[in-house]
């Protein structure tokens, strides 16, 4: 399997650098997710009205999930078209399911 060791060395270095760069963004993502979590808990603990808090924490959760999907699960990288189709079809069916169960089934 060892083809061209010389060019492999440069390639390895290049990829290592690239992985380091990715890792930096992932740590930033993590910091932001922690911050969002603290904000969400703070909003609930604080003296805010329900009509304000519920939509805001739902949006925060949505953003956190996108962080998780695109950075931690690497959906921002190339070759993730099929995963995107799968997960978004899943989310589509999930939204319909939740809407149906909360509005029709038990009323």
């Amino acid at each position: 399997m060892a083809k061209d060791t010389n060019s492999n060395q440069y390639q390895d270095q290049f990829y290592k650098q690239k992985h380091k760069e990715e890792m930096k963004y992932q740590v930033i993502t993590f910091a932001m997710m922690i911050a969002f979590t603290i904000i969400a808990f703070g909003l609930v603990a604080g003296p805010f009205s329900k009509l304000f808090v519920v939509p805001v924490i739902l949006v925060l959760a949505g953003v956190q999930v996108l962080f998780q999907l695109y950075y931690f699960m690497h959906m921002n990288q190339k070759g993730h078209e099929m995963p995107a189709i799968m997960i978004y079809s899943g989310i589509f069916a999930a939204v319909l399911t939740i809407l149906a169960l909360t509005t029709i089934t038990w009323i």
């Binding site: 995963p83 799968m86 997960i87 079809s89 899943g90 989310i91 069916a93 999930a94 939204v95 399911t97 939740i98 809407l99 149906a100 169960l101 909360t102 089934t105």
Partner: peptide
């Protein structure tokens, strides 16, 4: 593909 299915499964429990 499995994760897409899991999303729906959890959605039914959330609903």
């Amino acid at each position: 593909f499995f994760l897409g299915g899991e999303t729906v499964l959890f959605a039914s429990l959330f609903g």
